Amino acid sequence: MVRNPLTPEEHERGERLGLLLREARGSRSMAEVAAGAGISAETLRKIETGRAPTPAFFTVAALARVLGLSLDDIVGQCALIAVA
């Protein structure tokens, strides 16, 4: 299966998601948060740095649960916006 390239807007959304997750993680280690969400620390690192800008819904939901974020807040802060 060939995946369509991501748009600049999708890359920007991934960067905003990563920033939101990093801020919510605070002083907790990547390993601690990743383990709580049932993902690898490397997967969390890729999401936080924007190298995985479109993580699966259930991955985001698990991270939201561990970090005490609501999915509504994540959507509000990471909705697609036009990039000039």
Rank of each mutant, 00 (worst) to 15 (best):
V2S: 07
V2Y: 00
V2A: 05
R3Y: 00
R3G: 03
N4L: 15
N4Y: 08
P5K: 07
P5W: 01
L6F: 03
T7S: 08
T7V: 01
P8E: 14
E9M: 05
E9T: 02
E9V: 00
E10G: 01
E10V: 01
E10R: 10
H11M: 02
E12Y: 15
G14I: 06
E15N: 09
L17R: 04
L20F: 11
L21I: 12
E23V: 08
A24E: 14
A24H: 13
R25V: 04
S27V: 10
M30E: 08
V33W: 03
A35E: 15
G36R: 09
A37W: 09
A41H: 08
E42F: 09
T43A: 13
T43Q: 11
T43M: 09
T43W: 03
L44H: 02
L44Q: 01
R45S: 11
K46Q: 09
I47K: 10
T49R: 04
T49P: 07
T49Q: 06
G50Q: 06
G50E: 09
R51E: 11
A52L: 07
A52T: 03
P53M: 02
F57H: 06
F57T: 13
F58K: 14
T59V: 15
V60I: 13
V60H: 05
A62N: 11
L63S: 13
R65I: 00
V66T: 14
V66E: 15
L69Y: 02
L69M: 03
S70A: 04
S70C: 09
L71F: 08
L71I: 00
L71S: 02
D73A: 11
V75H: 06
V75R: 05
V75P: 04
G76L: 08
G76H: 07
Q77V: 01
C78R: 02
C78D: 13
C78K: 06
L80C: 02
L80H: 01
L80I: 13
I81V: 15
I81N: 13
I81T: 15
A82R: 14
V83R: 12
